[in-house]
Design a protein around this nucleic acid. Structure first.
Lengths: 174, 174
DNA sequence: CGGAGCGTTTTGTATTGACTGAACGAACCG
DNA sequence: CGGTTCGTTCAGTCAATACAAAACGCTCCG
């Protein structure tokens, strides 16, 4: 279990740097990524050796970003969290949005009247270049999603077939 | 000139949020983006109403990121800075690199032996998805560069033709 | 050598943010 | 109703960071 802990820390560091999330949020993300099913708030606090308060705050933060989902169960007052199935695309989308904001402000600049042609061209190029990349990335992301869904559906089908053949019950998911 | 100042502030805010740069660095970036030619350290400090020390530190920080270039001139002890011609692609490349690091760590996780199939599939998908996007973006960025260079060359040519027609000297760059 | 004009490094301060423990509030249970 | 068991919010502490002012170091003068 120690090896996993180390991996969680490493994942945490990368998330921390790439998304500028607080350390605990990053660790939660790492933990959930490596945990099958859900985790209760209590479990996460225990596992990461941090206070429940921190988990409460940072898990919600992650939920707001859309990379984590909160699960509740009938007859159970606890909250459970699991990583969102599309966690990585959510992150990308978030970043694309920020880039869109940048483009918008640059575009404002373009609408101001600017004496220097150099500057005008510079703004033009930046806006065009960023637009291009944002659109291309969005497009590629969609393409990937479509492809992945297709593959997943196929995998699901073969799995069902196997289950039908075996015809037995619970698959021991701990 | 006040309108420009406001735009610099707005650009600064976006850069600050999107690249997590200190405020002053973000403002420097905004200023250089809107300034034709170069700016001396002194000029920037004056214009942004901050200390020369801060400019010194943050301009170098931007230089390290590759979004800004330092210029020196023969017989002039001062440093000048200008925005890098490919400032936006530098930023993108930097981000792609971080994503590559994330992929690498996720891949490490994949190489660990993991009991749960759910987790294994999750890691697989994340790695594949991120790889796909990184490659696609890199590719699109290159495509854009090629296209832009072509356009730029064309523009340059017509400009030279015009200059040849006019056949006059300095073009008054403020 | 003694400035003057540069940029950098250092030192101190203020601000921001992360994190915790404790208090709190709601839902449940006896 | 009083006690649990949850999650959240509040108040305080601690560390990191941004920034400025001052000291420093270098280079070019006179």
């Amino acid at each position: 279990m120690d090896e996993q802990d180390r991996l969680i820390e490493r994942l945490g560091l990368v998330f921390e740097e790439s998304d500028r999330m607080p350390r605990i949020a990053s660790r939660i993300l790492g933990l959930l990524l490596l945990t099958p099913g859900e985790c209760s708030l209590e479990q996460m606090a225990e596992r990461l050796s941090v206070s429940r308060a921190s988990i409460s705050v940072d898990a919600r933060r992650l939920e707001e970003c859309g990379v984590v989902e909160r699960i509740t169960r009938k007859g159970d007052r606890r909250d459970y969290y699991r990583i969102a199935p599309d966690h990585y695309s959510r992150t990308l989308e978030r970043r694309l949005k920020v880039m869109a904001r940048l483009i918008a402000v640059l575009d404002e600049g373009r609408q101001m009247k600017i004496e220097s042609r150099e500057v005008r061209e510079r703004l033009d190029e930046a806006v065009e270049g960023l637009r291009f990349v944002v659109e291309a990335t969005t497009h590629e992301l969609e393409r990937w999603h479509a492809e992945r869904d297709k593959r997943k559906a196929a995998r699901q089908k073969t799995r069902e077939e196997r289950a039908g053949l075996r015809a037995n019950g619970a698959a021991a998911g701990r």
